[in-house]
């Protein structure tokens, strides 16, 4: 029998088949290992004249493939038309384990920490309630220093003892710099640390302010640390954080504990520096404050200000998070609305 005849027979038989059982019989009839008609055809090739074998072989294989494909399609159709009685509805929701996410502020904080850890920084921790020395005086802000106005402070009604037996805490820290003072009081340079944590200011609670926010401060002290080193470090940070080559700009500023002091702006990601509502048409976004450690701070912790220099910087996590997630109201980070929190990728 020729390949063409066999094909015609198959098409006719397939058109007649309707149930899964019919198709099973059809498969056996044509492709069965022992008695299948195509199988027989293939077997007959060996006895065909040598000059016909090649064409016969190719034709038989093509037919086999054609039948296989046709049967697969028809079998699937038959199964869909009459599924097994114990079939599961695979379109139902899965039994998925609960999945918690770290808070977006945590994710941004750890992202910043990770960038600096990769640069050889150690992350330190410290108390959220502080004494006046660690929060202000050691940072070149004696009592009645006008710069204290920049950090409107929340005070405790009565002093609370601290674990290391030092001065009792009298206030909620206004920045994490106190941790750096404490670290320098107990370690000699070189210093390369990151101090993250909650800080508190007597500030209103609205779309752009909170009386509590998260800050990460960094400090590097060694011989020969320069403003250039500060720039290189922060440029590296900005690129790692925004995952892009971003233009940066340093503007002179003032902090009592650094001299010179500067603020770092990065090119607005929303408009690539052309100006948009996000950056108030300036093309720049203010990211952090920084500067070279003031010699008075070194004196307060007993470092030799002639031998060592250092830089410090402080960045607000909420401000970075607003940019990263495209959120315009800082209060959303503290409402803990699951519909908000669970939108954040892990």
């Amino acid at each position: 029998m020729s390949v063409e005849d066999l094909q015609q027979q198959f098409v006719a038989a397939m058109n007649a088949a309707s149930t899964s059982a019919d198709l099973k019989a059809l498969r056996d009839d044509f492709l069965g290992r022992k008695q299948g008609r195509v199988t027989a055809l293939v077997k007959s090739i060996a006895s065909a004249p040598p000059d016909e074998r090649r064409a016969l072989g190719a034709g038989a294989n093509a037919l086999k493939q054609l039948i296989e494909n046709a049967l697969t399609v028809r079998e699937a159709e038959a199964l869909a038309a009459a599924p097994p009685k114990d079939a599961l509805d695979v379109t139902l929701p899965a039994r998925q384990p609960w999945m918690g996410r770290r808070h977006p502020l945590t994710q941004v904080q750890e992202r910043v920490e990770d960038i600096f850890m990769a640069m050889g920084y150690q992350v330190i921790e410290g108390p959220e309630i502080e004494d006046d020395w660690h929060n202000f005086e050691a940072l070149n802000m004696p009592a009645e220093h006008p710069a204290r106005d920049m950090q409107d402070t929340l005070y405790l009604s009565s002093p609370v003892p601290v674990p290391d037996g030092g001065r009792a805490a009298t206030l909620l820290r206004t920045h994490t710099s106190g941790m750096q003072i404490r670290y320098m009081e107990h370690h000699e340079p070189p210093v390369r640390i990151i101090a993250p944590g909650r800080v508190y200011r007597r500030d209103s609670f609205d779309a752009t302010h909170t009386p509590m926010f998260t800050q990460i401060e960094g400090l590097v002290v060694d011989e020969g640390i320069s403003l250039g080193d500060l720039k290189g470090t922060l440029n590296t940070f900005a690129e790692a954080f925004f995952e892009a080559r971003v233009a940066t700009r340093f503007r002179p500023s003032f902090f009592p504990y650094t001299e010179p002091s500067a603020e770092l702006d990065v090119e607005c990601q929303g408009c690539s520096g052309r100006g948009c509502p996000l950056c108030k048409q300036t093309g720049w976004i203010e990211v952090l404050g920084c500067g070279m450690v003031h010699p008075a701070v070194f004196e307060a912790v007993g470092y030799d200000a002639n031998r060592y220099t250092g830089f410090a910087f402080g960045v607000g996590i909420e401000r970075l998070a607003l940019r990263l997630y495209g959120v315009d109201d800082i209060r959303m980070f503290y409402e803990n609305d699951l519909r908000f929190l669970q939108q954040v990728a892990l």
Binding site: P97, W98, G100, T106, R198, M212, N336, L341
Partner: peptide, 11 residues
């Protein structure tokens, strides 16, 4: 363990 992290005010 399936819990979502929250950040609430200290005061």
């Amino acid at each position: 363990a399936g819990l979502q992290e929250a950040v609430t005010f200290t005061f």
